[in-house]
Design a protein around this nucleic acid. Structure first.
Lengths: 120, 120
DNA sequence: ACTGATAGTTACCTTTTGGTGGGTAGGGCA
DNA sequence: TGCCCTACCCACCAAAAGGTAACTATCAGT
């Protein structure tokens, strides 16, 4: 089996939280356990396919855990694992830096809106 | 002009440091100003095209600045702007978390190598 | 018997991202 | 004259990521 080689730590981190959706999902799960539908409503731009696909990958990386309740209609929820919690600080900073960046660009005349803040 | 809309701060951050290369480049520039060729040697997997393309985008976002010396052969170097420095803490944490993640996976039996650490 | 609710899968397609291999400039130097 | 050096650009192609729409299962309620 070929050994996977990284040159710098950030490569490994980005493999886990990179992509268009993972960091957004994680930012939401940072505050609370959420059902599939809640996540979908919190991230209205995401498609069903992407949501479950990304959740599966985060689960495989042991960042989120998936709880299935034996009910009909189905009930499934997701939360950060203990290990996933270790990303919480980073996720928060990523949110805050982005909010500042948006403010900056707005005051620079760019047409930009931020719909909700993550202020603690 | 259509207004660009973000739903959460992290979206904006990821637009800037996301993708396969940007965070790696920034992690290197965090410690020192570097010439094009130095960067290319520090990130051996990157192609010329990607290196300059990503640097242009980081420059456009006001994260890195590009200094051209009037010489032949050409000499160009890149460094973080003051604003770019505001990412330094995040970049460091991304590196450290990734290093820990790799350690974790190694002790879990995965065949993984990390070639160089960013320890401060 | 039919509908609604929830979570999920699949096939198919488009868009974005990344890689390759070639070429440019222009002064220094053998 | 001709080649080296550095940074960088371009045309073209391949691969990965993401989007759309249609489909599944199951039980409750009407």
């Amino acid at each position: 089996m070929p050994t996977k080689t990284y040159h710098i730590g950030v490569e490994a981190t980005m493999e886990i939280i990179g992509g268009k959706w993972k960091s957004i999902i994680l930012c939401h799960l940072r505050h609370q356990t959420m059902r599939t539908g809640e996540l979908a409503r919190a991230i209205p731009q995401i498609s069903q396919k992407m949501l479950t696909q990304q959740l599966r990958e985060l689960e495989a990386a042991n960042i989120v855990s998936r709880h299935v309740y034996q009910q009909v209609p189905p009930r499934v929820d997701y939360s950060l694992t203990d290990y996933g919690q270790s990303l919480s600080g980073i996720l928060h900073e990523l949110c805050v830096w982005g909010e500042d960046n948006i403010d900056r660009r707005q005051s620079n005349g760019e047409a930009i809106t931020l719909l909700s803040r993550d202020d603690v």
